[in-house]
Every structure is written in structure tokens, then in C-alpha cells.
Design a protein around this nucleic acid. Structure first.
Length: 129
RNA sequence: UUAACAGUCCAUUCUAUCGUCACGCCUUUGGCGUGAAGGAAAGUCGGGACAACACAGAGCGCCGUACUUCCUAACGGGAAGGAUCCCGCCUCGGCGGGAGACAGCAAGUGCCACAGAAAAUAACAGCCUAUGUCGGGAUUCCGGCAGGUAACGUUGAAAACGUGAGGUAAGAGCUCACGUCCCGCUGUGGCGACAUAGCGGGAGGGUAAACCUUACGGGUUGAAAGGCCAUGUAUACCGGGAACAGAGGGCUGCUCGUCCAAUCCCGGGGGGUUGGCCGUUAGAUCCUGAUGGUGACAUCAGGGCCAGAUAAAUGAUAGAUUAAAAACAGAAUCCCGCUUACAGGGUUGUUAAUACA
RNA sequence: GGCCCCGUAGUUCAAUGGAUAGAACGGAAGUUUCCUAAACUUUAGAUAGAGGUUCGAUUCCUCUCGGGGCUA
């Protein structure tokens, strides 16, 4: 199902603090991805945090637009990522940080989200070895 | 009809698929139904509601406001009116439009660069010798001193009521006529600001978005306010200070008052929590109509329920209309204003042009 | 969300309401040197924006823009 419920989003301050102090990160422009394995109290295999900086986009309307496009792209393309995690019995907390200063179109964002999720899988495979 | 200007109103449409948040219902790992940002949600510039502090006291300090009357819960907001200034018109004293933080430098103090004698107390240059005195001269003349005197003195943003006459030694609102302005009193009109007429007194540079005076108002802190439940814990140790008597504390700059009071304060260092519920959306509410009022607005009647999240909800794709789905822009306790941003469209008024009658 | 503070040369700071807006470092040009550094001489460069009060505004007032701090 292409849902995006609240349980699929990262909201615990404790986990967020831990993620940003201990998590590993890489960049797939315009996103910076911070991730770590965490034993989440949910049925979903991953929780995601989407962030757009107020320093880079002054107006709330612009921030909302980017967050909505990112959320939409993640919702439509997360299926294989979930299958991978469930197949290996992993649970993952990660953050998508938008670091560009320009507003990207939906098509560009979707492309990069797919790339990011593939990169996350390969990072996990590296970690196992 | 078109264009310009001013005012006012509306503001990313419709269909399908997949999704987000809240509420309700059901056969509850889900499904169905309903609802889902703004005129500025923005800036946080005023004012309130609400909450805690003693539901709050006194004085000082500090801050704010400033023509009048009214509206409002309140306001620095709004309405109507007054005076002043600016613009336009003409039949020349009226009409129309616009502007502004519009109390008081006639209570005190300060400041006014450069220039100028001087920036307000005076002094200086100049003018006058009526009066006093001294000297010369010798009978009404000259000079000095004392004295009198005004805004006339190249400036400047600003120079001490204006013009004319009288008056005098020379002069001066010193006096008079006409005029300007200010203060007080009285009459008339108006709730009032004020207008107008008369009488009396007076003549003063500017600056209060300089200190200030007067009048009125403001207790302080803000929903990260505040209340409840759950979980968990240790003020171990070190340094400095206050105090064994009213130290310290009660969210207030100081003093007083009042209540609680034996350990308290500062720095280093350490332990625990960082979850949930309420506040939280029905209200100075919205729509329609009637009545009162010049108006802001008020009252009455009928009807409606219109986001409520807590890392924070509205998007994506395809199609249609269109020249182009397109401006400024996203609720976070709520409300009333102000200010600022803004594509397009509707509508009202004024002006100009064109066409027709 | 709430409450505050600050915007002056490229940088760090000055400047009672008096305008030619100052100083240090830095920049540019020149002198000196075989070349560089140092030294010396000269020079460019700024009041965040708009409006108001005032004869006059960096300074006082209002609005806008930008930056920063505090608050569990």
C-alpha cells in the first residue's frame, strides 16, 4: 500500500537526538541522508524525518511545498525499500534533509529519492559485511 | 464602449485515480461518510479576553496618550464635527477636494553650528547732550565724563507687531488712527471643540518626534501561561559569600506594607525526567432581515456550526476550460484593529474621447 | 509561539542634532630595491531602505528589510 501514516514518521525527540549524534550520513544532492539501525516500536520497518531549513527558505509556503513533494515521492517509491528491510529483518530510522537553496520540481525530487533509497540499501549491505 | 484615477467586493476553477489530518458510524490490523487555511493566516505595531503571581495594596520611579463629541470589551482604531495649512473654481466670500502625533516654549531650564554687533540677559558700533559735572570759550558754542536711547547695524532658517501721524535733546506702542496676533471677562449660537459681537489688558524668535509641565491611563509576566496523571531521582563532592537573628523567599526597578519563614545565595561538578490528558476551539461567532442613528455602531427576530495539528495535516499524476491554472502567501490559545505584500476579475463614482438618439 | 537587542568604508570600531562622517588593519598606485618584505607618499571606498519632525538627522519618531540573542 502506498500509505504514509503517522507511525511511518519519526517523532520521538530521543531517537532524533541519537540519530543526529550517532547516525551515519551521505549526500545525494539535493538531499543529505542521516541513518542508523534502531529497534523501533512499530509495525513498519522504517521511520523517516523530513526537514527543510528555515534559513534556506524564509517563507513557510516554500518549505511546505518541498516537504510535500518529498513526502509524496517517498510514499510512492518506498515499497522495494520496505521489502528489503523486512527480508533482512532490519529496522531503520533516517532523516531526509533538503540542502539545496532552490525549489526542485516533483520529477527531479522523485528521481533523487529513488537514488537515495537505493544508496541506503547498498550502505546496509556494506554494513553487514 | 474604451482609457485613467479613486473607493469597494471576490480571490489556484472542474473531473478522475492514489494519498494526508480531525470527527462520527460500522461487521474495527480495515471500511464508509462529513469537514479541512487567509484577506492579509504575515509584520508582532496597538488593544483586550484568559491564566499565574496575595483575583493586586500605598508612594516614588518608568512608560504611553494628547482639538471636540461620540462608537467600542478596549485601543495609538473608527465615525461625525471644529480650527489650521495646501490645491482648484467662480458670481470675491463662498463652494468643492486633500493633508497632518492638532495640549502647553504667555510656567521653568537647556539648545540654536557657520555667519552676524547681537540667537534673547546684556555688551559693542551708532544717535542725543534736555539733566548733572569738569575743562575750554565767553553768553550760548565746543569737547570729555556721568547719563539717556532704540532694533537703525552688510548676516542668517530665524532679528524683537506693520503702515502713517504726533511726540522728544535724541528716541521708543510713549500716544493716536487703521490693521495683525495673544490673554481674560461678558453677551449670543452650539452638548463641546469653536464661531461671532463688545469691553479690559498686552506684543511674545524657533525648538516639547529637547528636558519638562498639565490632564488622563498603565501592577508584573505571557499558552514554552497554567492545571492534572504517569515514569524516575542524590544535591554525593569542591570553592566563595551571608546569617544564628527576622537572613531569605512569595515571577514587581526601589522603598513601605503584608504573608511564609531557618538555613540561604553564587560558581564548578553530579542524578532524574523530557511521555500522556486538559487548557484547545461555540465565539465581543457567522449569515439574512427589521428598527433606531448623519455615521461608526447598537438592539431585536430567524437560521447556521465553519481546521484543530504537536516535528506539526491539502499533495502528485492525467484530462477539460483558458493567452496563461497564474498574485501575495500557510492556522498553532482566541478575538478587535493598524501596517505591509498582491496576478486577475466584478461593481460604484468622477474625468476625457468616440458613436447613436 | 512569546519577549528583546543590533544594523556606519572590505573588516574591527569612533562620531552632544552642526556634513568635508574619523581611526586602525586591508585594497590600489607610486618612491625605494637586482626582486620581495619593511618603511614612506598619495588615493578609492560607508551611515540597511522609505517617509516624517527640525533651518539642519548617523543621531529623534514611524513603517519596511536584514542579522542576532533569551525563553521547555
Amino acid at each position: 500500500m502506498q500509505t504514509f501514516k503517522k507511525e511511518e514518521r519519526l517523532s520521538r525527540k530521543k531517537i532524533v537526538d541519537q540519530l543526529f549524534s550517532e547516525g551515519k550520513s551521505f549526500v545525494v544532492f539535493p538531499y543529505r541522508i542521516v541513518w542508523m539501525s534502531y529497534d523501533l516500536e512499530t509495525n513498519y520497518p522504517a521511520q523517516v524525518l523530513i526537514n527543510v531549513s528555515k534559513k534556506k527558505f524564509k517563507r513557510a509556503v516554500d518549505r511546505n511545498l518541498i516537504k510535500r513533494r518529498t513526502r509524496e515521492a517517498y510514499r510512492r517509491n518506498k515499497e522495494s525499500w520496505y521489502k528489503f528491510l523486512e527480508g533482512n529483518n532490519f529496522k531503520c530510522a533516517f532523516a531526509l534533509l533538503y540542502i539545496s537553496t532552490e525549489i526542485a520540481s516533483y520529477k527531479a525530487i522523485e528521481e533523487k529519492i529513488i537514488l537515495s533509497l537505493q544508496r541506503l540499501q547498498s550502505e546496509y549491505e556494506k554494513d553487514i559485511k
